[in-house]
């Protein structure tokens, strides 16, 4: 198998999960008919290029604590300033500007719901408005085959890779 096909196969399969057995990479190498060393070196290449953010456990955070998706409607001229204040709050761990009247969207996490309420109250004070509080009620199962056909295309096009790099901050 050439390196590019191996990359796509590994991304595709490992995205769905490593087997929880001794030597998981050797097990995957056997399945793909390559050596364990090739699997590890290919994954290292993907990690170095930034295509893999990490290999590791994906925990169900909902069981480990509480979280909510919150939003604020900020005057465009004040967005940067308020966003910086919100990002600085230790309970905030994702913060996105989005094109909408509600233009600042962030995730608030805490050990329990009281911790979330307290963080939302802090943010209400610094933003001068009560954030929308939209905790998850149900999560629908996602087919993890997401995007990988396209990913293969992106990986196979060096010009596109350069373009992506150029867009990165």
């Amino acid at each position: 198998m050439d390196r590019h096909s191996l990359m796509c196969q590994l991304l595709d399969r490992f995205q769905k999960g490593l087997p929880l057995c001794a030597k998981p990479y050797a097990a995957m190498a056997d399945e793909l008919g390559v050596s364990e060393a090739e699997v590890l070196s290919c994954l290292a290449g993907l990690a170095d290029s930034g295509v893999l953010s990490r290999i590791g456990p994906v925990f169900e955070h909902r069981r480990a604590g509480a979280s909510t998706l919150a939003a604020l409607a900020i005057a465009p001229a004040e967005l940067d300033q308020v966003a910086a204040l919100v990002s600085a709050h230790p309970a905030v761990n994702h913060n996105y500007a989005r094109e909408h009247r509600y233009n600042l969207w962030f995730v608030v996490t805490g050990c329990d719901r009281a911790a979330i309420d307290s963080a939302l109250a802090d943010i209400a004070t610094l933003a001068g408005q009560t954030p929308l509080d939209l905790p998850m009620l149900e999560s629908f199962h996602i087919d993890l085959a997401f995007a990988l056909d396209h990913a293969a295309i992106a990986l196979s096009q060096p010009s596109h890779r350069a373009e992506v790099r150029a867009c990165l901050p």
Binding site: L10, L11, F14, Q15, K16, G17, L18, L20, P24, L43, L46, S49, G50, V51, L52, S53, R54, I55, G56, P57, V58, F59, E60, R63, A64, A147, H150, A151, A154, L155, H160, E163, V164, C167, L168
Partner: peptide, 19 residues
Amino acid sequence: QGALRRVAAVPNHYRLGYL
């Protein structure tokens, strides 16, 4: 028991061109 979804490679979709 549902506390761990999987141990997996987590791709960076942004780096894959999904801007």
